[in-house]
Simulated assay, not measured.
Amino acid sequence: MILASILQAIGLFVATNIDDIIVLSLFFARGAGQRGTTARIFVGQYLGFVGILGAAVLVTLGADAFLPPEVIPYFGLIPLALGLWAAWQTWRNDDNDDDDEAKVAGKNVGVWTVAAVTFANGGDNIGVYVPVFLAVGPAAAMAYCIVFLVLVAILVMLAKFVATRRPVAEVLERFEHILFPIVLIGLGIVILISGGAFGL
């Protein structure tokens, strides 16, 4: 019974968070060569994911007033805005010379940026977790949360592994200033459309 719950939790986590590997890999690419990048991404991912779990638990406990289901799709506005900002920054700095220090200077990976993107990307996770938590009951839901929190660390390390493989890292480094805004904008649009925000 316990093993089955753990395996179900792992499956649910993988299904709802596999897309985070790409987003986190891009964060690692943006923060390459900067001290503390891994720690900031790690903390940001945990903060964002704890927010997701907290929201899911609140909704599960009947706190519909805190987070009505129709609000969830609007979390897509967060990565959309961040992606548009990153695209604007890239366009604005397009005329600069090829100074690596100047490129890195404007690309600090902040804890709150990672947390916001994680939370926004997890808006649909809330919609998945709530019915599961309701179905399995409080004790199993708590076990799911513990498994999820352990898996977050593995997810971050996997994303770092992907980002630090030379072929992958070279592609990300070459195209991250283009990929990063595209991924965030795309993520925002998908969340908005799939949730029916603004009547889409």
Rank of each mutant, 00 (worst) to 15 (best):
L3M: 00
L3G: 07
A4G: 05
A4E: 15
S5F: 11
I6K: 06
I6V: 15
A9I: 02
I10M: 13
A15E: 13
N17I: 10
N17W: 06
I18S: 14
D20I: 07
I22C: 08
I22D: 14
V23W: 06
L24Y: 13
L24R: 03
L26Q: 11
L26R: 03
A29H: 08
R30I: 02
A32H: 03
R35M: 03
G36D: 03
T37E: 04
T38P: 03
A39H: 03
R40N: 12
R40S: 08
V43T: 14
Q45W: 09
Y46A: 05
L47A: 15
V50M: 13
V50I: 15
G51Q: 12
G51V: 11
L53K: 06
L53G: 06
G54Q: 08
A55Y: 00
V57T: 14
V57K: 06
L58K: 00
L58Y: 14
V59N: 00
V59C: 02
T60P: 06
A63R: 12
A65S: 15
F66N: 09
P68G: 05
P68H: 03
P68C: 00
P69M: 04
V71K: 02
V71N: 02
G76C: 11
L77W: 03
L77M: 10
I78A: 14
P79T: 10
A81V: 15
L82S: 03
G83Y: 08
L84W: 03
A86P: 01
A86D: 05
Q89A: 14
W91K: 04
N93T: 09
D94I: 08
D95N: 10
D99V: 00
D100V: 12
E101S: 11
K103Y: 02
V104E: 01
A105Q: 04
A105P: 07
G106Y: 02
G106N: 01
V109Q: 02
W112E: 06
W112A: 14
T113Y: 02
V114H: 10
A115Y: 03
A116Y: 07
A116M: 09
F119N: 11
A120F: 12
D124M: 00
Y129K: 00
V130N: 08
F133T: 12
L134H: 11
V136S: 08
V136Y: 01
G137N: 05
P138Q: 15
A140F: 07
A140S: 15
A140W: 08
M142W: 12
A143H: 10
Y144D: 12
F148R: 04
V150R: 01
V152L: 00
A153Q: 08
V156W: 08
V156A: 12
M157S: 14
L158W: 12
F161H: 14
R166Q: 15
R166C: 05
A169Y: 02
E170M: 10
R174I: 05
F175I: 07
F180W: 00
P181Y: 04
L184W: 05
G186Q: 13
V190P: 01
V190M: 14
I191P: 03
L192P: 08
S194I: 05
S194G: 10
S194V: 10
G195Y: 01
G196H: 06
A197S: 04
A197Y: 10
A197K: 07
A197C: 10
F198Y: 12
F198L: 13
